[in-house]
Design a protein around this nucleic acid. Structure first.
Lengths: 339, 339
DNA sequence: CTGAAAGCGCTTACAG
DNA sequence: CTGAAAGCGCTTACAG
């Protein structure tokens, strides 16, 4: 059943049927009703791909995620999807599983006009490459940040957040503070490490190079790297982890080593994932406004798709240090708890 | 830049360019090379929507998920996506957030031929409706199960799994066993409740009607319903929760009430989500083969798309009771632990 | 307010 | 092995 069949049954032209569907105000009330009756009667559904082809709009946006399994990204995704759906867009989800090759493949979908725009939640490709694509296609980067990249970007200030997290440990009196990074080829990992280093140096604290261990975002890596740290001759008394997953691994490692958190090992996480307030001790962590990041990114993308100009390229969202139990407390510090 | 432009530059017909792209073996080696050279030189990308329109294939499959945020579904999704990508399909993700209206909207995409097929991870629509759609479009149901529905379905046997979980508590000597269900309009919730009832009845145990409390899948609801249960005059000594999230909520509620799990309250979960082995006490739970369910569902969908017939309609995957710490132990029971 | 006609960019059956 | 031509199902500028 196609539009011309409906037209015949309703004794109108295909053009009129098309108008009833897309611009009903252009059609007289009687004609409109006649056409709608036929459509309902035969349960006609327009062939969307034909429309996409004709209008050169797919009403699809592509979201490239490094890990769909992560509690952090699924919240960002939800922000994106809400705005997308409210504006008549569908979301194609591209899960790269942190594989740069798969990232390229998904970006290809954009080049082939399979989507009207793209939100990247990961950007491991090189800068010039990304900038070139962004000149020709609507594209927004979120969460990951690339220095000097001329593409609209939504993220928190990872360096200062990491500095804040580390300084929290310093204020509590810790001097031997370790850091478990993310994969070091990811810019975010280097940013947060930078923040850690800034905090340590500005307080004249030494960083034993064994105190910096590279993780891979996973609970297991947080666990294993903490075991390594605790096995050092001069083990740290506190750990700042790149994310909550690894922070939870750190706590587990401490427990399995007969240590207690926060008494023997203070731990700070990052992201404020749901589980961070369930695990015991509750994690002190940096909150990222996950939903809002996704929302903002999609709003920017819509502007680009609609040809509006974006005056600002960088959007820095507000982070927040959430103090819970995993670092212990200092009477001087005001306590805040979030469930 | 379109195909005809490439054709001109290479001094061939558009048909030949098309063949080089889709059926290179039909083109002589020299011609092929000549065309490929031009394609690379001008960086030509075919317009996929035009191809979709012409071939009536989108190479897209739609996955309808009740909650993208859930650790359980994201694993199933990954199984689906792996098989999809390996077979040249893209995934459109439809997150319904447990809203039946949004479920309908996504299914509409299928009716409008926006996708070649669909995997439903939630089926709240009525049976006749679904069966009719399934007669005309490739469709597979996974995780949720609908009795007597004539649509290929991949799931575990929820009733017997729930029975097994409850019987585990009974074997440990519990007689006052409560159950926190999922939303009762969801078939899975009723199935698992049925299994719970079967276990209780076959052991001649009474079910106090206050022992059955309806949750909404969330940690918070598990927490609140457990608080309610513990406030009963004759509180239960064990809880079987519909899923791990709510089981974790139950444990937290016990702790906050000054009780210890498993000593004062034994808890069994369902799904064997990652966090179930991180939380303390580690959850005893039913493992669902999440990745395999997704994989199997997508494999079936591919068969349907390719016009192959499926002789069997129901695929029941193997579950497993994972005994960890949250129910305590009984010397008679063999311990198994999974990290 | 409505219709006739062109055309979006591919693929493929057919002919040679 | 290659090309000419038709056609997939819509939308829209144009004419009336």
């Amino acid at each position: 059943m196609k539009m011309s069949d409906v037209a015949k049954l309703a004794n109108v032209s295909p053009a009129t049927v098309s108008r009833v569907l897309s611009n009903p105000e252009l059609v007289s009330k009687e004609t409109r009703q006649k056409v709608l009756d036929v459509i309902n009667e035969v349960n006609y559904k327009p062939h969307i791909v034909a429309r996409q082809f004709r209008t050169k709009e797919t009403k699809i946006i592509l979201v490239v995620v490094p890990d769909i399994t992560s509690a952090f990204f699924s919240k960002v995704l939800r922000g994106i999807e809400h705005v997308a759906v409210n504006n008549g867009y569908q979301v194609i989800l591209g899960d790269t599983e942190n594989d740069i090759e798969r990232e390229k493949e998904y970006i290809n979908l954009l080049l082939q006009k399979q989507a009207d725009g793209m939100v990247l939640l990961t950007a491991r490709l090189n800068k010039t490459n990304l900038e070139e694509i962004s000149e020709h296609f609507p594209m927004v980067l979120a969460c990951e940040y690339m220095d000097g990249l001329n593409v609209p970007t939504v993220s928190i200030d990872n360096i200062s957040s990491a500095r804040k997290a580390t300084e929290h440990l310093i204020k509590l009196g810790h001097t031997k503070i370790a850091h478990i990074t993310g994969p070091i080829n990811v810019i975010l990992s280097r940013d947060r490490m930078r923040g850690y280093q800034q905090a340590m140096m500005s307080h004249e604290l030494d960083i034993d190079s064994a105190y910096i261990q590279e993780g891979d975002f996973s609970f297991e890596s947080g666990y294993n790297q903490t075991l390594k740290l605790l096995a050092l001759e001069n083990p740290p008394t506190a750990v700042f982890a790149f994310n909550d997953e690894m922070a939870m691994g750190a706590i587990k490692a401490a427990k399995d080593s007969g240590l207690k958190a926060p008494e023997d090992l203070a731990v700070v996480g990052f992201d404020n994932v749901k589980m961070s307030s369930v695990i015991e001790p509750n994690l002190t962590t940096i909150n990222q406004p996950k939903y809002e990041i996704g929302k903002k990114a999609m709003e920017l993308l819509l502007k680009l798709i609609n040809g509006e100009s974006i005056n600002k390229k960088k959007f820095v969202m507000k982070d927040e240090l959430i103090i819970r139990e995993s670092c212990g407390s200092n009477p001087d510090l005001k306590e805040q708890t979030k469930m």
